[in-house]
Each structure stands twice: as C-alpha cells, then as structure tokens.
C-alpha cells in the first residue's frame, strides 16, 4: 500500500509528500499531547496538531475551513486552554504524574479502535483516488450555510451564546 501511496500520479506527488510530512508531524505531536508530563507542553503540542490539521484542510481543498480552524481553534480554543491550565495549575505539577491508574487500559482500546477503523477504511475505500479539485469557493459554503443549513446556523449561534453565558455563569466567583 505504501507503494501505492508513493506511486501516485505526477501532479500529486508533491501533495502526497506534503501530506506525509504533515501527517507524521501531526501524529508525533498528538502522541506527545497524550503522553507528556507537562500540561503546558501538552497544550503546545496540541497547537501543533491543530496547525497540522489546518494544513491538511488546505491540502483537501477546504481553505475556509482551514482558516477558520486556525482562527477559532488555535486562536481562541487554545488560548482558552492555556488560561484554564493557568488558573488550575496550583495543585497539579509534575509530582503526581498525569496518567491515572488505569492508563494501561487505554492502549488496547486505542489500538483496537484504530485497527478496526483502519481495516474498515481500507476495506471500503482502499482504492479510491481523491479527485483533484480546485479550492472550494467560499461562496458555495455561504450558500449552504444560509439556505439549507440556515437553521443549524442560527442554532449554533444560540449555542455559542449560551455557551458563553453559561461559561460566565459557571465560572463566576459568587
């Protein structure tokens, strides 16, 4: 299969390479997220992962999503995470270790899950070639948002509002 991946058509060799490098970085970073002993380090590794995701989005001809990813996730969510880490840092340090007692259970679960997914994916999509498309026009996205998915769009704005208010309410010091 690796041969198939590498031996793609000429136009996409660059894509494949890029993809491969970014994917490797992402996997490495993700592994670090879940294994590092330092919470802040984990957050920073998560930033790496998120960035890689954004890059993948671009490779997948979803630019608006990539940009949104960067803006929202890396810009807001990660900051939020860092704030959260900061505010709750006092009791947690490197002393206790960041893995709970049953961490070993996670390995087989994760491996099993990955194996299953991999098998299913390969079984279903093993030979599919991604079509070569140009970048997706944002117009098409907005068309979708404001026509078919209008209600979810408005709903999600409510959700965000509720989340914001809720967060404030929850985190108040009263």
């Amino acid at each position: 299969m690796s041969a198939v991946i590498l031996a793609a058509d000429s136009v996409n060799v660059a894509q494949n390479v890029a993809f491969g490098i970014i994917a490797a970085i992402m996997i490495f970073a993700a592994l670090n997220v879940v294994t590092t002993k330092n919470v802040v380090h984990a957050a920073l590794w998560l930033v790496v992962v998120l960035s890689g995701i954004a890059a993948q989005y671009i490779l997948a001809a979803a630019e608006f999503v990539a940009v949104s990813q960067v803006l929202v996730y890396i810009g807001a969510v990660m900051v939020l995470f860092l704030f959260g880490i900061m505010l709750t840092r006092a009791q947690i340090g490197k002393e206790f270790g960041l893995n709970n007692k049953g961490w070993a259970l996670g390995i087989p679960v994760a491996l099993g899950l990955f194996g299953l997914l991999a098998w299913v994916i390969l079984d279903a999509f093993g030979d599919d070639i991604l079509p070569d498309r140009g970048p997706a026009p944002t117009v098409a996205l907005s068309d979708q948002f404001l026509s078919i998915y209008l209600v979810p769009f408005l709903a999600i704005s409510f959700v965000l509002l509720a989340a914001a208010i809720g967060a404030i309410v929850l985190a108040r010091k009263d």
Binding site: K101, L105, G106, V109
Partner: peptide, 22 residues
Amino acid sequence: GKIGQYGALLFGAATVGAIVLV
C-alpha cells in the same frame, strides 16, 4: 467513579460493538 475507567469502558464497548457489527 473514575472517569478514565468510564471512558475506557465506553470506548471499549463501542469498539467491541463495532467489531461485532463489522
């Protein structure tokens, strides 16, 4: 009451279920 365990159970069960389904 351990969340990690709950998570393990949850995902483990889902995995098993999925394997069976497949």
